[in-house]
């Protein structure tokens, strides 16, 4: 399956892209997507704990199963206001 990955702020800079695609095995979960992202940009590994992941606009856990065409957003800790 293919999922779209939107990255923001520090995560975007380390990944080098705000909008990319990942190809994952069927049955993949959010944690598998994160692992694939870290493989692409190993410097992201220390940010695993603080980065929230949204699937199609909703914050989810690493256990969340993915479907082809999903949009994942990698959200580091907020700095708004």
């Amino acid at each position: 399956m293919t999922v779209r990955v939107l990255a923001f702020a520090r995560v975007r800079e380390i990944l080098g892209s705000n909008d990319s695609t990942l190809t994952l095995n069927d049955g993949a979960r959010v944690s598998d997507a994160w692992a694939a992202v870290v493989e692409r940009a190993p410097a992201l590994a220390p940010l695993a704990r603080s980065t929230r992941v949204a699937r199609n606009g909703e914050i989810v856990s690493g256990e969340e199963p993915l479907q082809d065409g999903d949009e994942l957003a990698l959200l580091p800790p907020s700095g708004g206001g």
Binding site: A9, A73, G81
Partner: peptide
């Protein structure tokens, strides 16, 4: 405004007069 600072997906990069910059995160 407290809730916005806590969780809204918005990020801030400060630019300093000494030429450096930094992502600033709100206290959880």
């Amino acid at each position: 405004i407290d809730e916005l600072k806590k969780g809204a997906p918005i990020w801030k990069k400060e630019r300093y007069l000494d030429g450096t910059d930094d992502w600033r995160e709100n206290a959880p």
